[in-house]
Design a protein around this nucleic acid. Structure first.
Lengths: 223, 223
DNA sequence: ATAAATCTGTTGAAATTTCAACGAAATGAG
DNA sequence: CTCATTTCGTTGAAATTTCAACAGATTTAT
């Protein structure tokens, strides 16, 4: 566990908790660590929500599939991020999304029941954990507002620009990377991949953007 | 305040709190009640998040506007519902949405700081309130998943059917009402209003649906 | 290093959405 | 009750997206 202390300390779930208390608490919470290869399913749609995941290394995506196999990407999960907490906290019967490793991952799993309900040792940090969970859920809520702001645009071009402008702002630079390949970006923006590729080329030809794989640069920011 | 006790007791924020404690707590939290006429703005986009709202009577919509005035409806707020809590809990500087009364409303406002930080009277219910807020935020998160599941469909017809099927399931009947007029439904589904009207007519002609204003009935459920 | 598999950009045709405009119906105000 | 306003359904044309197919590039596995 010590190996991951640095990552765990940055995890919002453990805000306000000292190092040695953190380690004790992890034992008390029955935390486990599991590794996943690329493309493996970390949480599967349809299961009961029980565990909160903490990403220790690697990246994963939250995805939703409909009847016809259309894929929608909801969010990106990077080291220090929590996932599955909304379903676990709401004690949902049926999780409507899957979490899929987009690179090899190491994940810490914690049974959410141990966080929400007092543990036998009464280790006294539940209140802080619950407060931290509340903050995290509020932040996730705002993230969804952002995603909806992006995908509510009506054209591929507008969605793409809205997305890229958010990422540029987030990274504080006109030159930045995105955590998606083309298909995943299309699934996040909820548009057709080939149409998305065409739009990227067009923006490059117009001198607004420069793009090499997952790296983008604004030459002329619109708006 | 007593007048609203019946509604407040059903509000998830006050779960697990007895009637007389509830009334005392409202005083301690500095709760205020304000009325709004139809179309009035309850919370305005761009302001700092400070208050949690509780709807006491009437209905409101959460809406987002982009540069060009395109409107997107995020959610419906009915009596007993909480709103604004995500921004207040995350202590957001700039709320990206407005809350607009879609009928005359009465709203209770509570300064969120009084919930998150211990009050001078130390009235001892903060832990319960924070737990309740966490549950509420987890539920809202799931609501957004649902909205995204609906709006990620690529055609007006699929979005409309997905939405109506959710509402039918929610109300446990093939005959049900929706809380939107045509324009608001279009803004929720993120489609063109006239195209939506056309699609509704088509579904009716095909014998799948029956519709009178905001009332819908499935005659033949697809899928 | 080589072969296989995956990812990406292009294309053109078909399907769908958006947009603007209009009249009819419903609602609200005085 | 009447007039003004808003909502709603319809239309046709223009713009955009989706779909399918393909070849070149890149990545992965052996």
């Amino acid at each position: 566990m010590e190996k991951y202390l640095k990552i765990l300390k940055k995890c919002s779930l453990f805000y306000g908790i000292s190092d040695d208390n953190l380690l004790k608490m992890l034992t008390c919470l029955g935390a486990r660590i599991i590794g996943f290869d690329k493309k493996y399913t970390i949480f599967a749609e349809g299961n009961t929500a029980k565990y909160i995941g903490i990403m220790l290394s690697g990246t994963a995506h939250t995805v939703q599939m409909d009847y016809f196999g259309n894929r929608s990407v909801l969010s990106v999960i990077k080291p220090t991020h929590i996932f599955g907490e909304a379903f676990a906290c709401a004690e949902a019967e049926n999780v409507p999304v899957s979490v899929i490793a987009s690179e090899p991952c190491e994940v810490m799993l914690i049974d959410c029941g141990h966080i929400l309900h007092t543990c036998s040792n009464n280790c006294g940090f539940h209140q802080q954990l619950i407060f931290n969970l509340m903050k995290d859920l509020a932040t996730k809520n705002i993230m969804f507002h952002q995603k909806i702001e992006i995908t509510s645009k009506r054209t591929t071009r507008e969605k793409l620009l809205a997305y890229l402008l958010f990422r540029a702002k987030e990274q504080g630079a006109d030159s930045f990377d995105i955590p998606f390949d083309r298909q995943a970006l299309a699934d996040y923006l909820e548009v057709d991949r080939s149409g998305l590729s065409a739009e990227i080329s067009k923006l490059c030809r117009e001198g607004i953007l420069e793009c090499r794989k997952n790296h983008f640069e604004f030459l002329n920011k619109p708006y």
